[in-house]
């Protein structure tokens, strides 16, 4: 069996993109648009900047198609581009920290998803406070720890894949995650006592 048979499905789609197949690009875009934007949004905490960075991610995927070599999982390559763009954007200071307050004007934010259909004013307030605390706690993590936590928690990536995205060893990833979660646990420990879901 040829080497291509062991490639993941996305890498095979990307090889078709490399050979000019726009349909395969559309499939990849459809599959990863959401995860990439959500990851970037949690990294930079600004919807407009996250979408602009996501545009750049997919433009780079498309423009880099000629040089694409399926040496790693497609998602590793994709999230490496996204992570580098997010970190550069944060370093450039283009993103105003916590620019979007959750209790600010609605804008293009989604409606708050509170478990009860008709939350009381108090529940809504508690929810908003908790959400704001989570966002602040994540934004206070150093960039690499933040990226590692977001990939581990929300994208459910394996250590090896996160290591490949961040170009470090698996044990370095475990160390990053361990320290990051330790900070978050300390920072958010009181939230679980409030209980008010």
């Amino acid at each position: 069996m040829g080497a291509s048979a062991v490639l993941d499905y996305d890498a095979r789609l990307m090889l078709l993109v490399k050979h000019g197949d726009g349909g395969s690009f559309a499939l990849l875009l459809n599959k990863y648009r959401g995860p990439v934007i959500h990851f970037l949004y949690r990294m930079v905490q600004n919807q407009a900047v996250a979408e602009e960075l996501a545009q750049e991610v997919f433009l780079r995927v498309y423009r880099g198609r000629g040089n694409y070599e399926p040496s790693a999982k497609f998602t590793t390559w994709l999230f490496r581009i996204a992570t580098n763009l997010a970190i550069n954007s944060l370093r450039d200071g283009k993103v105003e920290k916590n620019h979007e307050q959750i209790d600010g004007p609605a804008g293009d934010r989604p409606a708050l998803q509170v478990p009860d259909r008709r939350p009381s004013a108090e529940q809504l307030l508690v929810y908003r406070v908790k959400l704001q605390e989570v966002r602040e706690a994540i934004s206070e993590l150093p960039e690499k720890q933040r990226a590692a936590v977001l990939m581990h928690k929300y994208e459910e990536m394996e250590y090896s894949q996160i290591a490949s995205v961040l170009r470090c060893s698996e044990s370095a990833v475990k160390s990053l995650l361990f320290r990051a979660y330790e900070s978050l646990r300390a920072r958010l420990a009181h939230m679980d006592d409030k209980g008010a879901r």
Binding site: L29, R33, G34, I37, H38, Y41, R42, Q47, A50, E51, A54, Q55, F58, L59, D108, R109, P110, Q113, Y127, K130, L131, V134, R135, I138, K153, Y154, Y181, L184, R185, L188, A189, M191, D192
Partner: peptide, 26 residues
């Protein structure tokens, strides 16, 4: 216990919907 509670807290942060014109712009 701390880790499970933390992940419960992180679950509060749901993802944002993608704006309508994203693909068109791209």
């Amino acid at each position: 216990d701390g880790q499970i509670a933390l992940w419960r807290s992180l679950d509060e942060w749901e993802s944002m919907p993608v704006s309508d014109g994203f693909d068109r712009r791209l």
